[in-house]
């Protein structure tokens, strides 16, 4: 187990065409996540956060530097549930695509539905579920992949504010019971401070880590806790945002 180690990574995209315009997404990016640690990465839009996650998941290779990580599974911003499949089959997809027979995959997914308050919705198709429930189904799918590292790409950004708060509290409880190495990419500084052990602040493009904040607060945390608010302000300051 090595968690996640990203060292001095550079990633350059070349726009197609004869006069290739180069876009440096990441430059000298470092990131560490010890096994079982929850690391949040915050940064402005377009600072290469999603690229960083794809590197961690092995979906892209760096142009320079090294990426070493335990096997990681991606949880994107949108739930990407299959509209034709039931909630249970959507969660079980993680097993089905590895060749597990349908019946056994469902049997393995059912206990997660009970734990996550999804009982009774096994046969519902995604269109009949609320945004929060869909995201929980997507999270069951992510956990069933059985990977030690979870790469969460703004998992709650598509939800409304109220559901997002609910889901953040829910995720904190789940990760307490079911510890994984987590790289959580978000532009929501509050979310980062409430959920993570450590917050890494990225610069605008080309993205690199410019600040690192140890959170070190007891859980459960609330967004109104004085320490949470103070850390949030420090993170915002590091981001260069007006307080």
């Amino acid at each position: 187990m090595e968690g996640v180690r990203v060292d001095g990574v550079e990633r350059v995209f070349r726009a197609r065409g004869r006069r290739g315009v180069e876009v440096v997404a990441l430059h000298g990016m470092d990131l560490r996540a010890a096994p079982g640690e929850i690391v949040a990465v915050v940064g402005a839009s377009g600072c290469g956060k999603s690229t960083l996650l794809e590197l961690v998941c092995g979906l892209q290779a760096p142009d320079a530097g090294t990426v070493a990580a335990d096997p990681a599974v991606l949880m994107p911003q949108r739930d990407l549930l299959l509209p034709w499949a039931s909630a249970l089959d959507n969660a079980a997809l993680a097993l089905r695509v590895r060749g597990v027979p349908a019946r056994r995959a469902r049997v393995e997914a059912v206990p997660w539905f009970e734990r996550f308050g999804l009982s009774g919705f096994e046969d519902a198709r995604p269109a009949a579920l609320s945004g929060g429930m869909r995201q929980r189904v997507a999270f069951v799918r992510t956990l069933l992949a059985g990977k030690p590292v979870l790469a969460l790409d703004e998992p709650f950004a598509a939800l409304d504010a109220l559901t997002r708060q609910e889901m953040q509290g829910w995720l904190a409880r789940v990760l307490a019971e079911e510890p994984r190495t987590v790289v959580l990419v978000t532009h929501d500084v509050e979310e980062a401070v409430v959920l993570a052990d450590r917050v890494v602040v990225m610069s605008p493009r080309p993205g690199r880590a410019v600040a690192e904040l140890e959170v070190g607060l007891a859980r459960p945390r609330h967004r109104t806790d004085v320490a949470v608010v103070a850390l949030r302000e420090r993170a915002l300051e590091a981001l260069g945002a007006p307080a």
Binding site: C57, A72, M75, P76, L82, R98, K147
Partner: peptide, 25 residues
């Protein structure tokens, strides 16, 4: 959705299984 295909790759889905479980339906 290309995001869907990325997700499936991190789930270790083979080309055939992506076709069978996602693309054909």
């Amino acid at each position: 959705d290309p995001e869907q295909l990325k997700l499936l790759r991190t789930l270790d889905a083979s080309r055939w299984r992506i076709l069978r479980h996602v693309e054909l339906p």
